[in-house]
């Protein structure tokens, strides 16, 4: 479904990603693990087009998208949930959802505000609250809901568990499993191994802009050596 190879990205003169390659298949939850500054967010931004890669190919459902603008990539069925959430703080919950709304598409679940409020009951209780007056956890739910309004086939979740209370992290894991059941593919970036274990089928480890490990989540959990080398602080 999503196939990246030879990806190189820069911030100004700083070379961030080196020949990065990864894949995500239909109905699969794939996690990109790595420490702070490893290049996880840059990978996500390169896929959605917010960072223009200098080289490499990104294919989504057989079409190359690496030279397209973010709105075209989003309309192709790729949803992006940024790490910093980027809620429109002046807009209400309903209005935030409205900004994300796109026509329904074949082969992807169709979301309405009502369906999303079933998934995130908290949001349904604060439809008219401005985004700026919500807690961090509520904002995290809203940013995912907003992206789902675009009816994506694959969703990029950039560190969804970051800064959330343990009980909310648990909810987040349930949400991701629910999305998988709906038939969505998920590519998430994480530092939280425990959280990843709850949701992911496969894992990549990225370090200093290079993929250093790839395998099933279960294999990774057994491989203490790899974890010690790349993930422990």
């Amino acid at each position: 479904m999503l196939k990246i190879s030879g990806l190189n990205s820069f911030y100004g003169r700083a070379h961030i990603l080196f020949d990065l390659a990864l894949e995500a298949n239909k109905g699969e939850v794939v996690v990109l693990l790595g420490r702070n500054g490893a290049g996880k967010s840059t990978t996500m931004k390169s896929i959605i087009g917010l960072v223009q890669p200098s080289a490499g190919s990104i294919e989504f459902e057989g079409k190359s998208i690496e030279r397209q603008s973010p709105y075209r990539i989003a309309r192709a069925g790729l949803g992006y949930v940024p790490e910093e959430r980027r809620i429109f703080t002046d807009l209400t919950v309903m209005e935030n959802l409205e900004v994300g709304r796109q026509p329904s598409r074949d082969g992807a679940p169709t979301w309405t505000p009502e369906r999303l409020f079933d998934l995130f009951p908290n949001l349904g209780r604060m439809k008219d609250r401005p985004g700026g007056r919500m807690s961090g956890g509520e904002q995290q739910m809203l940013t995912i809901a907003r992206t789902l309004m675009g009816n994506p086939r694959l969703i990029l979740l950039d560190e969804p568990s970051e800064g959330l209370a343990p009980v909310i992290v648990e909810q987040m894991a349930n949400t991701i499993r629910e999305l998988k059941r709906e038939g969505l593919a998920v590519l998430l970036s994480e530092q939280n191994l425990h959280f990843s274990e709850m949701v992911a089928d496969r894992a990549y480890i990225v370090e200093k802009g290079r993929i250093r490990y790839s395998g099933s989540m279960a294999d990774l959990m057994r491989d203490t050596e790899v974890r010690a080398a790349f993930l422990q602080v």
Partner: peptide
């Protein structure tokens, strides 16, 4: 109004 606050994010939402 959304673009007034964060036009890049509006683009990323399609």
């Amino acid at each position: 109004r959304a673009a007034t606050q964060d036009r890049e994010m509006v683009g990323a939402l399609g």
